[in-house]
Amino acid sequence: MLKRPIIIDTDPGIDDAVAIAIALFSEELDVKLITTISGNVGIDKVTRNALKLLKYWNKEVPVAMGASTPLIRQPEDASDIHGASGMEGFDFEEPTNELLLKENAVNAMYRVIQESETPVTLIPIGPLTNIALLLKVYPEVKSNIQEIILMGGSVSRGNKGVMSEFNIHVDPEAAKIVFDSGLPIVMAGLDVGLKALVLPEDSAKLEHMNATGKMLHSLFKRYRGGSMKTGLKMYDSCAIAYLLKPDLFEAVDTFVDVELNGSLTAGTTVVDLKGYLGKPSNAKVCIDVDPERFREWLLDSLRKCN
């Protein structure tokens, strides 16, 4: 079976770790590159976290460090959710830098995409700064990008601003560049992330499942994306879930823009479900997910990990 080549752009991040695990151990995916972006915590920490995960799983995927700040705005993080290191709660071995490329993320993505014999799918599960820079610096890569499946945005309200989801809120200018790119885009945002839960009984199963499950169970005890009692939100896994199992989701083709200037609403994804703006669709937006089937898929996927 021909594996689908993907690049994961990430800011690990506890729910990022789940998404990366599923992608790395999937028989359908070929993770060509992991690029890091400042988001949940700063760029040095998220890059170390990516290397820690790869060492834990004994996977040799190259890592390229990306942008340390948004395009224009001051950086913000989510250390209140993920802990000071970004992956609090498990004692990882310190990684070496063998997998860390000297190239920055944008140049590494450009090279991997251009060298690929089949179009590459981009999976950004953090702020979109690296992807925006790639598309601006090297617009010729568009011809060898199959699609962008991103975790970010919201059809309704926000989790960082009143109306804005964290990944878009942190760098709305970058998000606007991506949505305006003309590439096929799937937006798996807050609306599905809030329903994509790991419930307490699932967490209990993870602890005794395998080494990955044990590690994630430890991280979940420190994760503030929900609670161990009521369920933990697996936002980033929704992007991988859509890639591998799109029938879990209800998705609609629509026009999406990003608010840049509103003093109360900057970073809001304006999802024009009713067609008020009269603009052609530029994204497929996930508006619902089957929670029970998602949980089954997630646990089945994690069982395949080491």
Rank of each mutant, 00 (worst) to 15 (best):
V18E: 12
A21F: 12
T265V: 08
L29E: 10
L2K: 14
S156C: 01
I125P: 03
G278L: 06
L51C: 05
F294V: 05
L199M: 14
L51V: 08
G278S: 09
A108M: 07
I81Q: 07
A175E: 02
E292I: 13
V186R: 08
A17D: 03
D171R: 11
L71E: 07
V178C: 02
E207D: 11
V186C: 04
F90I: 01
K279Y: 07
L194P: 00
P200V: 05
G226L: 10
L244I: 06
N104C: 02
V106F: 02
I125Q: 01
R293S: 13
P246T: 08
N144D: 03
L248G: 08
D257I: 02
N49I: 07
Q74P: 00
A105K: 06
S85T: 15
V63L: 08
S237A: 15
L101F: 05
G231S: 00
L264I: 12
N49R: 03
D180Q: 14
I287A: 03
E28G: 11
F92Q: 08
M228Q: 13
W297T: 01
L128I: 02
K274R: 13
E27M: 01
S281M: 00
Q74C: 01
K142A: 13
A174P: 11
L244A: 09
H217W: 13
S26F: 05
G189R: 04
C305A: 15
I125V: 14
V258E: 09
H82R: 10
L299K: 09
P246H: 10
G275Q: 06
L194Y: 12
A196G: 10
V289Y: 03
P5C: 08
K205D: 13
R303F: 01
P70I: 04
D202N: 15
F294W: 01
S116L: 03
G226C: 04
S85G: 12
L53Y: 05
L194K: 15
K195M: 10
L33R: 03
D253V: 03
E250T: 15
S68Y: 02
T10M: 14
